[in-house]
Design a protein around this nucleic acid. Structure first.
Lengths: 190, 190
DNA sequence: CGACAATACGAGCGACCGCTCGTATTAGTC
DNA sequence: GACTAATACGAGCGGTCGCTCGTATTGTCG
């Protein structure tokens, strides 16, 4: 790792911005590294001064988005009151900032769906912790499975939500909440 | 369209078999047409005797899978008794053959998730018809939205189900059923 | 200023992609 | 067997991809 100057840190941010925009427009596979460099206003060579390969760009972007998501979700997750909240309220509290985040960052969805991406595992872990807090006696396997499934449902519907124009979007958010509430409510749930 | 001999029809089937296997292993984008030809035991030139381009292979495969899925689902969908079945029973009746189908045809999942693929629209339409049968007074928009969301939930979880080894797979199928039942049960649902 | 590291450039490499085309072989029909 | 259409081949074209490398410029620090 080399010593970054202020200019270098700025470049990294610009590269991630460009990658995020292009991922949203055309997906990960179909976005070339040369296109990322061009969008960021630099040459391909300069891009590779900061990232060893394309995957590293996705990883770094994933980390940055996870950080931003953590901030946006601080209130929803960290409040210890969540343990006693009615389920529909809890779902809204988690989903609303998440939708806002994805609308503000289209392109995040192509990263959150990928297993192994920090953004994916990070979100899943946080949901798991929340489940744990509400159902302390649930076996580990059930917690893992339930949080994984919940995240997959969110990821599956988020694309349509982000893409929809406004009257339809609100309806789809409502559907997402109904799906999560319905899934989490029954017997073993919370 | 040229006149196909028996050998030609056989080749088409072999090409689709090869494509299905490779799509399951490495996904659509990362599967090359030369690889499909090689797996089918023919040359790239021969492949293009039967399909004008890569997309046409996916389309034809999608059509074939939709046909097979229709057969597997005939009992679940066409029986007029579905109108009065308890929701959990109905969900099982639809989900179980679907899981069986996807386990037998891994690779179908990369096609069912794609909007515009016959496999996707075909399944969504059938679910919509089923909703209509159970809730005749539901507005068209709600039917469309609900069936779309239900299909997206299934598509999202199916990948994990197919990939999981057997004790875990059954648990995940159970989760899928819980999710669908929970989603479809509430107020406006069926 | 001089020395060194960080930043920047962009032509282009090697690999792979979807696909073509000239040619050879095989099967159906009389 | 002769003729035709269907089938089969595979080297390779034009293009894109991720990425490199030699070189030039800019910033930091003594």
């Amino acid at each position: 790792m080399v010593k970054r100057q202020a200019r270098g840190r700025q470049r990294i941010a610009e590269i991630l911005d460009a990658a995020l925009a292009l991922f949203a427009e055309t997906g990960y596979d179909r976005t070339s590294t040369n296109a990322i460099a061009a969008r960021a206003g630099i040459s391909p060579g300069s891009l590779y001064q900061y990232f060893p390969n394309k995957e590293a760009i996705a990883d770094a972007l994933s980390e940055r988005l996870l950080g931003e998501l953590r901030e946006a979700h601080a209130a929803a997750f960290d409040d210890s009151a969540v343990a006693g909240l009615p389920l529909p309220d809890l779902v809204s509290r988690v989903v609303d900032p998440l939708v806002f985040f994805h609308v503000a960052n289209p392109g995040a969805k192509v990263l959150i769906g990928e297993k192994g991406q920090p953004l994916h595992t990070g979100v899943t872990d946080r949901v798991g912790a929340l489940l744990r807090a509400r159902s302390p006696h649930l076996p580990d396997d059930d917690v893992r499975r339930t949080s994984t499934v919940a995240v997959q449902i969110v990821a599956a519907l988020m694309g349509g939500i982000v893409a929809a124009p406004e009257p339809e979007r609100a309806a789809l958010v409502q559907e997402l909440k109904r799906a999560l509430t319905g899934y989490l409510a029954p017997p073993g749930g919370l």
